[in-house]
Every structure is written in structure tokens, then in C-alpha cells.
Design a protein around this nucleic acid. Structure first.
Length: 847
RNA sequence: GCCGAAGUGGCGGAACGGCAGACGCGGCCGACUUAAACUCGGCUGCCCGCGAGGGCGUCAGGGUUCGAAUCCCUGCUUCGGCACCA
């Protein structure tokens, strides 16, 4: 009789419990409580775009389940949240709708706070951080000044990536072969500008070291590749004298293959190389100038793929190879990059694909200097080669390399470097792909740089006691779309803190990735007035025990954060050198079309409708049940009804154990031959073995199978609903465990049913979320009999029901005695019998 | 091109080298209902067979093993990252 109990109505239950939890301050962490083990759980804070979409739920709700699970294990869990509130969308909205970025941002934050509460997530709200708040960004400024003092921040003129919409970009913010802006997709240009940089390259080697942190392999690989350490040598060539210039200029190149030095048949300089002008012969001047002009234009318009045919021009000059004094031509070509290595290469066409293509195109010589040992004597000098030989086989030896001939290539590497070093014509060298982090942005909505430009004193830092340098409250975009600070004289005009003469403020603001590079430290003391980080709390709570967030930040936020931690450690602000002990990358929920969710594509899934229809618990559980958390995938609500049905069944099981469904002819009766005692044992066994696996699955973030196992237990309970065991002791224990296991994931329904259960038993109320995680009773899981599959040649033929402690020999005898096995054996020769895994399976091998 | 991850029913997905397809969706059948919805029960990888049962099955092809979705090799496909990095 289903009318006996009230319906499961999440809309009634969920807000009530959320209010109660807030009232009880159940999730506000006492950071000073030293009685319990700490657990700092961090999830990437959202950008306040206006609406929470299903992707936010996908990141946050399983993280919340982790927080609740850890609390049930007695840990003092710190699970803060905040808003990454600076950034371009606010400014774009401001320009478009004539609304101040402040208003836009803080209105969105208000809305999102309310949405976040509907999740039932247990954030420690008093620790909230909003990066656009002067209380936050003043510490960006403070940290910047300390970096400046420590030489970790500097201003330099450099060729930088420039987006026509967003201005300068960090190297990491330029994507794809066509080099487009990560944010707006516009093609990125090159510009020579005076900008602020952070010296991340100082930490390149340390950033390659992941020992001591438990991060996913793909992220480690991506960061490693991004940093791109190359071990090789710097080799000093000199320019050869001729009738135009005296020669003797040093031309340094970086190579990873010093063992191929005798194969260098020409040199190539990047078009931007400083010596190009000096080395260009008058009769080639026009051609070289034209080439450089074209190269500049081309990098601005588009950089085509590696398939593009190589281009270049001869300068007319020659260089001298330091090992054999050979004169080789110096060319200019855009396949050599100004910003990597020394901006110049020695070309070894025989052993480099790019050099080979270039040599063939321009008829330059190819000389083989590496060959497989067994062919070393037979091969020609390389002129007939049809492709570069780039293999780095251990069996390669040097040829055509004079006294190094016959030496294995790996040892020649060292031998040649040694000789160069001895003659002061080169040395071992390391080069990285990683560049210093360009942090200047030509934008209003970001942290102002705390520096002024004084006519007399130059760049002058703003003294600490004058921080924060605030963004002006009113902004006038004048319809231009460019940084309004440039025209805001109230902001712009100031006096030099050093000499008092008129000075001008820096109008660029900091990359917003600065904000996210240390926000987890500020969570610990968001209102601390005299410093960015509370050292005592930081020492106790950091590093973060578990970080959850998307992999799309692999070489941006996740790399910058590691750099910041090391740099903050160096300036004495924090105690450790790695911020996040353990990282988990959940997958991304894509739109129904399989594309990344975005407003412009119109494929954003709004969860509010689902919450209204099914409740937060169902949505939470469904997102966990969809598939492995690290996988993500296209959004489809198909199947959410099944999860909702499951929660309804749990509701019924707890509130109406003795009810009998009309639809099942067997309802209310135990299966023929099953005693109530056996049924009770089966229930206990199922409950405790479920507890065992579910505990493990929570720990490993395998939420999809965790939910499946809870469903299985509920299905079994349903099976016994209305029978003599329903409502009994074993039943009650199973229900209790089910609710406890459900509590981290579906916190509202678990709390509601827990409260009703306590009331029914006449016990005083206490929250299920303050309960301890239950312990497995191993004795309950022990079974009386066990099913053993019997295979013939690996194919399942029969099953045996045997006592759990049966001897292997006995198992073998029983298996061979079975009719089906005998039948399968007929006409075959018995080879042997394998009893595998301590009696878990029998395999009869026949011929 | 290089690096990384992954290919399992109609679908999402399970499976310490040991019973492939748990759990859920969808579908079919049935019960309840005047009826429908809800709910409940049963069946549901493909092929042959009334059935008992048998055959085939984890991207393709090889290999290792008593035994392979799982390990190894080759290839194909999809997704993510990098983009002439010397």
C-alpha cells in the first residue's frame, strides 16, 4: 500500500536541510582545531560567468562527496570556494551593456552563490575569496613587489604574442598551429613591446621534477613537453673574412647533436638575428631585406605547417666550422626561430629532416657523418641520400669525421663537446622551450601593477603602505574597447614616491592567472590585513591534500601554481615547494553535440531545470553514475530517471519495509526453501561486502561503480521487502549501512531518512553527516559455499558449489567427475588440470 | 609529423591475466488499473534450435599463456596536447 507513506519530494527536503546545515555551521572548518587530522580539499574555483552549468556540477558535486566522505573518517576537512573574478568577459559585458565590471561580476557572484547552495555542497563559506576584491588583489601587488625585489619579476622589451582583441598573451595562451588566442580565437601577431615578465624559467629544472607529488601521468607529460628541456651543446662558429667584412664575429649555435658537427654544411640564421645586417653582402641586400620583410608579414598573417616548402636566402657570407675550419655558407630562413636557442643553427642536412629539405631545395651539400656500424664502410659521402638519417641507434658510429671516425655516436657526443670546451669554442648546454611568463595585459579589469614611471627615477615601485593601487570605480570606455585606464587621468597622474615629481602609473594590469596562482593560500586567512598568507595556518594546512579540476589547465594554471609556490617559498612566504600533493583531473562534460559547452554554440546545459524536476541528490548521483569521473563525455540526461527511481526505492525501503507490491506474484514471500535465517545472513553479507567495495571506490573516486553497488544492495533489499526478514535486525543493519554509504553522494535524502529512522527508534536526532564511516564486519561476509567455474580449454562448461575451504585436489576430483566435463572430454586426451587462484577456478586442459 | 589517452550490446558503461557485458537507459512480456501514467516482476550480446543445448563474440591481424577485453608486436580509428624547438 503505497499511500501509507509520503512521497519522496526533494523540493521539500533539500532546502530544509541546506538551511539546517548552514544554521549548525556544519561545514565551516575550524582551521585551528588540532585534534583531528587535516584534509585540505581544493576544487578549481569558478569564473563568475553568471550561471552555473552542468559542467560546474560535474566538477563540484563529486568533490563534495569526497569532502563528506573524509569528514566521516574523522578528518578535519577544509573545502573552500571562491571566484576567479577578474577577466575579460566582465569587461566585454561592460562595454556591451554599459554596466560596470564590478556590478556585472558581483551580481553574477550573488547568483552563483545561491546556485552553489542548491547543490548541497559543504563549502566553508566564511573563507570565500573573490579575486576582484581589493583585499585580494592588493596581495597580488605585494607579491609582485617582492618578486621584483628578488629579481623574479622584470620588465623587458621582447617580441611578444599580441592578440588584436586581448592584447599581449603569455606563450601558454597561444594555441594551435595557426597560433590563435586561447580566449577569443583571433590570430595572434608578433609585436616588440616593453612588458612585465615573471622568471618562471629559473625553475625549469625543478618544474620537471614531479617526485613527491601524485599527479596524473598525462599532466606530467604535458608539462614536461611544455618545458621542453633539450640537452646539447653551444658551438661557436666564427664568420669568415671576405672583401666586405673582416670576419671574426662569433656565431653561436645550439645543437642537440654535437656528434654531427662534421656534417654541418651550412648555417642558418633566423630573420630576426642581430648579425643578419652585418653579414649580408651588398649585392644580396635587396633580396635579404625582401625576405625578412616577407617573413615578418607572414608570421603576422599566419604560420603555416611544417609541410610548407622551406624558404630562405643566402647572405653572401661564410662561417668557419670550429672543428675542421671549413667555410660554410650562412643563410637566413624563417624555419629557424629567433626565440629558441641562439636563433641560429648549424645545418646538418644528412641527419636532420628540416635541414635536409632545405639543402635539397637550394642545392646545398649533404655530408653523411653518422652511419649504422655494419654499413659504415660501404656508404657514400651522403650526396645520394634521399632522406635524412635521424636514427639515434646505439649501433651508429661516426664517419667522415676525421679523428672521431668509428666512434659510437653517443660517446662522440661527449668527446666532441670536450674538445670544443678545451679550445674554448663551445660547451655543453641546455635549452628549454619554456619562456618567461609575460604577465602584462592591456586591460582594465585586472590587478594594477604597483609601479609608477617617473621622469627622473624611471620605474618606481609603489611602497607597501600605499597598497592597494585600486582600480578606479568609474570607467569610461569611450566606445573604444581599449584599456580605459590609459585615458583616466585621476588614475594615471600621480607623483613619484621617491622624488615627488609628477609620475605616471602603469596602465597595464596583471594576467588573471596571477590570481589563481596562489588563491588556495588566501583561503586560509581571506581577511588577514597584514600579509597575503597566514604562515602558521599555511604550515599546518598546506600543501593541499587533494586538488580536483580540469586538465585543460595543464600548462597554464597548473604550471603557474607550481612556479608560484616555489617562488613564494624562495621569498619566505610559504613553507613548501609544491602546492598540490595529489591531483585528479575529472573529464569534461561536453554539449549534447559532443562539442565544448559554450554560450556561442548554444549547447550549454542548464542544471536548474533538472534540479527542479528531480532534485539535487538525483542530479549529483546521476553525474557520478554516468561514467568514470576522469572521462567526461557528451551530455545526455538519458538515464537520469533510473537514478531518481533508485532514490525512490531507497525511500520506500526505509519508510515502508513491510509493504507489498501488487505487481509481483511472489512478493512478500521468501523464495522456496530459503529460511528467514538464511535470508538474514544473505542480507548482512551483501551489506558488508557492499560496504567493503564502496569504501574502496570512494577512496579511488570510482563513483560510477560505487553507485552501481548501492543500487545492487537496494535491489536485494527490495527483493526481501514484505518478507519475514524485512524490518528485522539484519534488514535494519543493511538499511543503516545503505544510508551511511549514500550520505556523501546524496546528502539530503540520506539526512532525511536518517532523521526519520532515528525518530522511529525514539533516538535523539543528530546529523548523518557527523556519523563515523562504518566498519566492515568480515565475519558477515564469510560464505558457507562458493561457486567455482569449471572450464575445458578455457571455455566455461560447468559450475561447482563447494565449501569455501575445499582442497585443490578435491576440487579437481569433483570437477572431473561432472557429467558435462566428462562429455566435453570424450574423444580427447586429458593433458592436465589447472586449479587457479587458490581454488577460484578449474581449467581442464585436453588435446 | 611527434607525444598522450582510448576503442566492449541499440546506448552510458562493468570486469586483481580466471564465469565478458555488473549497474543503469532503451526494448519486449506480464501484474496492478475501467484505462493510461506511476509502480512492481520477468526476459533482453549475436546466430542456429520448439527445447535441452550448441556455435560465434571485447577495432583488425599476429604472439605470449592452461586461460587474454586485460600483457607484447603490427596496423586502423577516435579524442586530447604540441606545431619547423635545431
Amino acid at each position: 500500500d503505497r499511500t501509507r507513506i509520503d512521497r519522496y519530494d526533494p523540493a521539500a527536503i533539500e532546502p530544509r536541510w541546506q538551511a539546517r546545515w548552514a544554521e549548525l555551521r556544519l561545514h565551516e572548518t575550524d582551521l585551528h582545531d588540532e585534534g583531528r587530522e587535516k584534509f585540505y580539499l581544493l576544487t578549481m574555483y569558478p569564473y563568475p560567468s553568471g550561471d552555473l552549468h552542468i559542467g560546474h556540477w560535474y566538477i563540484i558535486t563529486p568533490s563534495d562527496a569526497i569532502a563528506r566522505f573524509q569528514r566521516m573518517h574523522g578528518r578535519n576537512v577544509f573545502f573552500p570556494i571562491g571566484f576567479d573574478a577578474f577577466g575579460l568577459p566582465a569587461e566585454n559585458a561592460a562595454i556591451k551593456n554599459q554596466i560596470h565590471p564590478w556590478q556585472w561580476t558581483f551580481r553574477n557572484i550573488d547568483h552563483m552563490r545561491a546556485q552553489l547552495r542548491t547543490m548541497g555542497a559543504t563549502f566553508s563559506w566564511p573563507n570565500e575569496v573573490v579575486t576582484a576584491d581589493p583585499d585580494y588583489y592588493r596581495w597580488n601587488q605585494w607579491i609582485f613587489l617582492r618578486f621584483l625585489e628578488a629579481g623574479l619579476a622584470y620588465r623587458a622589451t621582447a617580441t611578444v604574442d599580441w592578440c588584436p582583441n586581448d592584447g599581449t598573451l603569455a606563450r601558454e595562451q597561444v594555441e594551435g598551429a595557426d597560433r590563435h588566442c586561447w580566449r577569443c580565437g583571433a590570430l595572434v601577431e608578433k609585436r616588440d613591446l616593453d612588458q612585465w615578465f615573471l622568471r618562471i624559467t629559473k625553475y625549469a629544472d625543478e618544474l620537471l621534477d614531479f617526485s613527491g607529488i601524485d599527479w596524473p601521468e598525462p599532466i606530467r607529460v604535458m608539462q614536461t613537453n611544455w618545458i621542453g628541456r633539450s640537452d646539447g651543446a653551444e658551438v661557436v662558429f666564427t664568420t669568415a673574412p671576405d672583401d666586405v667584412q673582416p670576419g671574426g664575429d662569433e656565431l653561436r649555435v645550439f645543437t642537440t647533436r654535437p656528434d654531427t658537427l662534421y656534417g654541418a654544411t651550412f648555417m642558418v640564421l633566423a630573420p630576426e638575428h642581430p648579425l643578419v645586417g652585418r653579414l649580408t653582402h651588398p649585392e644580396r641586400q635587396a633580396e635579404v631585406d625582401a625576405y625578412i620583410a616577407r617573413a615578418e608579414r607572414e608570421t603576422e598573417i599566419e604560420r603555416l605547417s611544417t609541410e610548407r616548402e622551406k624558404t630562405g636566402v643566402f647572405t653572401g657570407s661564410y662561417a668557419v666550422n670550429p672543428v675542421n675550419d671549413e667555410r660554410i655558407q650562412i643563410w637566413v630562413a624563417d624555419y629557424v626561430l629567433a626565440g629558441y636557442g641562439t636563433g641560429a643553427i648549424m645545418a646538418v642536412p644528412a641527419h636532420d629532416e628540416r635541414d635536409f629539405a632545405f639543402a635539397r631545395r637550394f642545392g646545398l651539400p649533404v655530408r653523411r657523418v653518422i652511419a649504422p656500424k655494419e654499413q659504415a664502410g660501404e656508404l657514400d659521402d651522403g650526396s645520394s641520400m634521399t632522406e635524412a638519417y635521424v636514427s639515434k641507434s646505439q649501433d651508429d658510429v661516426l664517419v667522415n669525421s676525421r679523428l672521431f671516425d668509428g666512434l659510437p655516436a653517443p660517446s662522440a657526443f661527449g668527446a666532441i663537446v670536450d674538445r670544443l670546451a678545451a679550445e674554448d669554442r663551445g660547451k655543453a648546454a641546455v635549452t628549454y622551450r619554456l619562456r618567461d611568463w609575460l604577465i602584462s595585459r592591456q586591460r582594465y579589469w585586472g590587478t594594477p601593477f604597483p609601479v609608477v614611471y617617473c621622469e627622473r627615477d624611471g620605474i618606481v615601485p609603489v611602497p607597501d603602505d600605499q597598497l592597494p593601487v585600486r582600480l578606479p570605480e568609474t570607467v569610461d570606455y569611450e566606445g573604444r574597447g581599449e584599456n580605459p585606464l590609459r585615458h583616466d587621468h585621476a588614475f594615471l597622474d600621480t607623483t613619484c614616491p621617491r622624488c615627488g615629481l609628477p609620475a605616471r602609473r602603469e596602465t597595464d594590469t596583471m594576467d588573471t592567472f596571477i590570481d589563481s596562482s596562489w588563491y588556495w593560500y588566501r583561503y586560509l586567512s581571506p581577511h588577514k590585513p597584514d600579509g597575503p598568507v597566514d604562515g602558521a595556518l599555511e604550515a599546518r594546512w598546506c600543501p593541499v591534500d587533494q586538488y580536483t579540476g580540469g586538465a585543460e589547465h595543464a600548462v597554464m594554471h597548473l604550471l603557474y601554481s607550481r612556479f608560484f609556490t616555489k617562488a613564494l617559498n624562495d621569498i619566505g612566504v610559504v613553507h613548501e615547494r609544491e602546492p598540490f600533493k595529489r591531483l585528479f583531473n575529472q573529464g569534461q562534460v561536453l554539449g549534447a553535440d559532443g562539442e565544448r559547452m559554450s554560450k556561442s554554440r548554444g549547447n550549454v546545459q542548464d542544471p536548474d531545470e533538472l534540479i527542479a524536476r528531480y532534485g539535487a541528490d538525483t542530479v549529483r548521483l546521476f553525474l557520478m553514475f554516468m561514467g568514470p569521473w576522469d572521462q567526461g563525455g557528451p551530455w545526455s540526461p538519458t538515464g537520469i530517471g533510473g537514478v531518481h527511481r533508485f532514490l525512490n526505492r531507497v525511500w520506500t525501503l526505509v519508510l515502508d519495509p513491510r509493504g507489498v507490491e501488487a505487481g509481483d506474484p511472489e512478493a512478500g514471500r521468501l523464495p522456496a526453501g530459503e529460511t528467514p535465517e538464511a535470508a538474514a545472513r544473505a542480507l548482512r553479507s551483501a551489506a558488508h561486502s557492499t560496504l567493503r567495495v564502496v569504501t574502496d571506490e570512494y577512496g579511488g573516486f570510482r563513483f560510477n561503480t560505487m553507485v552501481a553497488h548501492l543500487m545492487e544492495l537496494a535491489n536485494l533489499l527490495y527483493h526481501y521487502r514484505g518478507t519475514d526478514v524485512a524490518g528485522g535486525e539484519a534488514w535494519d543493519e543493511a538499511v543503516r549501512l545503505l544510508l551511511l554509504m549514500l550520505a556523501p553522494s546524496a546528502p539530503h535524502i540520506a539526512e532525511e531518512l536518517w532523521a526519520r529512522r532515528l525518530a522511529a527508534r525514539g533516538e535523539a536526532w543528530h546529523s548523518i553527516h557527523t556519523e563515523s564511516w562504518p566498519a566492515v564486519d568480515a565475519a558477515a561476509i564469510e560464505e558457507e559455499a562458493r561457486e567455482v567455474p569449471v572450464q575445458v580449454n578455457g571455455k566455461l562448461r560447468d559450475r561447482l558449489l563447494v565449501p569455501p575451504d575445499i582442497a585443490p585436489a578435491e576440487l579437481e576430483r569433483l570437477a572431473l567427475g561432472r557429467e558435462k566435463i566428462q562429455a566435453a572430454l570424450a574423444g580427447h586426451e586429458l593433458v592436465r588440470v589447472v586449479v587457479a587462484g587458490g581454488g577460484r577456478l578449474v581449467n581442464v586442459v585436453v588435446r
